[in-house]
Design a protein around this nucleic acid. Structure first.
Lengths: 140, 140
DNA sequence: TTGTTAGTTAACAAGACTTGCAGATTAGCG
DNA sequence: CGCTAATCTGCAAGTCTTGTTAACTAACAA
């Protein structure tokens, strides 16, 4: 995802306006590696901007996804996660604590037998237990 | 997924009962390659068994998944799909028509750098257009 | 066959997440 | 400042799935 000021320009170029709500969302997402949900973005922002609505957060996040500035990661069980990392990468989801980690995978060696299917993207999700959940001391 | 009669035995062994509703669901799923949703299973069965409820279909499908007889495929945008193919395989989802095709992928060559993450399963979903949707004659 | 009982079902409601809608508000611009 | 289209908010509704509960039934034993 680009910086908040670059996004402001990008929005303007598309005829979209620069609002304080959008600025707050841009600022919150920039450099955010935590794969937040719409709800968690809202909760963080509403502290400083009590009037913002969850509806607006959803809308702006969807706008960013449509513009290719944000990736949505839709995993089983719950809300969509958003990822400002738009580079080609994949994810490891911890079954125990729900944490989501970025994963660099080299898929270039995969031989696909697609029988006429024209791929445009590929999502790999690995399920398991993250390092802290699988350490012996962590047995809640 | 095993045959309906084998499943009946497997359910009995677990102390679960053999009901006409479950029989109908087993029969509908066996050999079904269409990746049906709970809703579509329900719609198919209710024609012959008007009294069955969608709730029962969900419950039985979840039981089958818990027993490892059925795979659930939870993709973005809509209902969970169920797959009687429990072999290790992956999926190609058509963005246009929503069709889901099985995909055999050899992932053994993947070099994973997991940093302490303990994987237990891996799901690969390729998005794109299926053969019929990407053929020149199909431009609705 | 009949009684017992744990497991199952149907119907309804609610939960979780997301989007549609309508009217009030505001950014951008001359 | 004042115009206009875009945006925001709050609420309702939609979609998919699960919880609840009373009535029902398969399986088993005598």
């Amino acid at each position: 995802m680009r910086t908040p000021s670059e996004l402001t320009v990008a929005f303007r170029e598309r005829g979209l306006k620069n609002t304080p709500q959008r600025q707050a969302i841009f600022a919150h997402l920039h450099g955010n590696l935590g794969h937040p949900t719409a709800e968690s973005v809202y909760v963080s922002i509403v502290k400083d901007m009590p009037s913002i609505s969850l509806r607006t957060v959803y809308q702006t996040l969807n706008d960013l996804v449509a513009m290719g500035e944000l990736t949505s990661v839709d995993l089983e069980g719950g809300a969509v996660r958003f990822d400002p990392n738009i580079a080609d990468h994949h994810h490891a989801l911890c079954r125990r604590c729900g944490s989501l980690a970025d994963l660099d995978l080299d898929l270039s060696s995969l031989s696909l037998q697609l029988h006429g299917f024209h791929p445009d993207s590929m999502q790999v999700v690995i399920h398991g237990q993250c390092a802290s959940c699988s350490s012996p001391s962590e047995t809640p």
